[in-house]
Amino acid sequence: MTTLELPVLRDILRECAGEDDAAGLQGDILDVPFSDLGYDSLALLETASVIQRRFGARLADDAVTRAETPRALLDLTNETLAGTS
């Protein structure tokens, strides 16, 4: 079963929403809130749309905007993928 892991999420964030020069995406960011990483809700919707296209996971917009950390977004994606596989 395909799962989304942090390194790929990091690449997707960089590619579609850019990287905040101050906060950056290096290191252990799993539990760092997206807001501290410099991402707003629109950046998350953009990220979710790339995840959906690449992994075929259907993520509800309101579930995405409730995911406040990379770990929460990974969990949401991987649970969705598990449910649909």
Partner: peptide
Amino acid sequence: LPGRLIPQ
């Protein structure tokens, strides 16, 4: 410009 601004 900051990286966050480029894609938008």
